[in-house]
Design a protein around this nucleic acid. Structure first.
Lengths: 344, 344
DNA sequence: TTGTACGCGTTATCAT
DNA sequence: ATGATAACGCGTACAA
């Protein structure tokens, strides 16, 4: 257990001053004689020297690190998102501190404090919806904030990357309406969130296009957290006039909802045609494979990273940007025409 | 975009010296008059002061941070593991830097360097199997290393937390043998890994108990990375005398393997009884629900964290510990007696 | 081209 | 109980 060598050790054994070593490490900061450069590099390798991040950070004032504040790593969607972002970031030489909120505002606040302490230059997050002041404070301290998937409308000045929510929900709904379904359940996120509202709006818009009125009973806005999806499924199917179609538009609740459907032994698409928002690797391994709105996770990752990094380098216009990427509808066998469902 | 206040700012506006503020922050470092303490706390709150992690780290020499080097966040097993570890760690007031290797030794080496730069006190990892010298170097620099799920036998002095691999594999195999199956395929990890070897050993041991000789053709050790699982499934089922049972004992390859089974339209358990190592949330949503060896992820997380933290505080005996937790076998409907399979 | 010296924000030591 | 002040390791003007 010996202690790591410092820049001074390197300088000493290489017979030069610390500034020379520093310049070898950061070439753009000044010239250095080829001969000495070689010598220094050799010593660095011999000693296994590595600059300490903390010291550098303290000196330069910032760190090539961003924070990633994600709702729940146990959910395939967020896990994959994290995976892609971490991957992409590495390519740009920036580290990522991954934190999870479990949809809890307090944990979220905690995470933000931690990220502040570590003076990250930017944060990519799927916000819980609370902590508005805290987010604002982050911004005022120069931390670039990018929201992905969801957003907080009350907060101005943040970049947002998400899928085209209204359109995606409309398309999913129209697909079922087109199959003849009249009563379509919708499990969305909280109406307090942009995502929740947009998807409900798309759902309604589709109904208008088909001149069908929507039964408010069929729309369930459930929290991201907990087992709201499963419960909503239960109560929707317990309705006297139960729906023949179901759209799970709350990504965080897809697992919970599908689990309940399977537990209840619901015949899909016999009794119920279903579409879920989020095409994770297991969606097509269920029986039957589930039709899904595929969130292009790569695009979400690439764009959000591009935005934070761009801002950190000041290479972007001041105005906050909103990027909406297209989400494909992936039809599979969990949807069937209403008339062909003999059960009802 | 104003700059964050420092300890000096606090001291100044509170009319005290920085030492007092520091002592308020770290109570065990010395006494402070109640009156002043109050004043300082108030100012801290007003200014929204937070100590900078980098400065503290530089001063004390280490940081309450551990690294988590995980193979692939897109895989539910690792994602959940990460989730639990991050969660547990927060409870202990330690931050976690999550990194992914994508099973690539180079990326792994990279991650280790990064963690070194940030002078983490410990690392929890699912090692790729390479970088033996690098891991050793980490240790020699005082970084506590704990391997979870897998290990590298060539490396001494590391703590290991894993499931009881031999026994679990034996139990799974005996379950199928007990159902009358004579030819059971095994998809394991590389024989270069402890996990791969142990599970193969359990598989063989079970056969011995049943006095059945194992056909080497039925054992496929595939890399953690890539689509080896799917390919193995394909070639196993293409065998002239194809197996009637299959155990996927390579956690990283479960997705790939199951996907191939579904794509090939294999009738389960009609044509093939299957058991997978890793009970993720979707395992029971497939058709039929898959029998699985359930890795107690919480236990893995708790123990590995306990070990790193314990070592960091020097509260543990020097000898490296190996913790093997029990893994339940969860029988579901993907296994059936051989005689009842009419197809064959 | 190279070296010296100071600052970054915090903790810790030692007087007071 | 409090206050100077020296580290901690690195970057960087500035001088040589």
């Amino acid at each position: 257990v010996k202690k790591a060598p410092t820049i001074r050790d390197v300088a000493a054994t290489a017979g030069v001053s610390v500034s020379v070593v520093s310049r070898v490490l950061n070439p753009e900061s000044g010239p250095v004689a080829p001969a000495k450069r070689e010598a220094v590099l050799r010593v660095i390798d011999e000693l296994g020297y590595r600059p300490r991040a903390a010291a550098r950070e303290l000196s330069v004032g910032h760190t090539p690190t961003i924070g990633l504040v994600v709702a729940d790593l146990a959910n395939p969607f967020f896990a994959q998102l994290a995976d892609r972002i971490v991957w992409e970031a590495r390519g740009h030489g920036v580290q990522v501190m991954v934190m999870t909120t479990q949809e809890d505002p307090y944990l979220e606040a905690d995470s933000l404090d931690t990220l502040l302490d570590r003076s990250v230059g930017g944060v990519i997050a799927t916000p819980t919806g609370a902590n508005v002041e805290k987010w604002a404070r982050l911004q005022s301290l120069g931390v670039n904030v990018v929201f992905v998937d969801r957003t907080i409308p009350e907060l101005s000045g943040v970049d947002v990357v998400s899928i085209e929510n209204v359109g995606s929900a409309r398309r999913a709904t129209e697909h079922l309406l087109g199959l003849g379904h009249k009563r379509i359940g919708l499990i969305s996120g909280p109406v307090s969130t942009s995502t929740g509202r947009s998807r409900i709006q798309g759902y309604q818009s589709a109904h208008e296009n088909f001149s069908i009125s929507v039964d408010p009973q069929l729309v369930r806005d459930v929290p991201f957290r907990g087992d709201g999806g499963g419960d909503a499924v239960g109560s929707l199917l317990a309705l006297p006039d139960r729906p023949t179609g179901l759209i799970v538009a709350n990504t965080a609740q897809v697992q919970s909802s599908v689990r309940r459907l399977v537990q209840m032994g619901t015949s899909i698409p016999g009794d119920l045609s279903v579409i879920v928002f989020d095409d994770n690797p297991w969606t097509e391994l269920t029986s039957p494979p589930l039709s899904a709105i595929r969130q292009p996770i790569d695009m979400l990752a690439v764009h959000s990273l591009e935005l934070v990094l761009g801002r950190m380098q000041g290479k972007l216009p001041a105005a906050p940007r909103t990027i909406e990427v297209n989400a494909d509808f992936v039809p599979r066998s969990s949807c069937a025409p209403l008339l062909l469902s003999p059960t009802r």
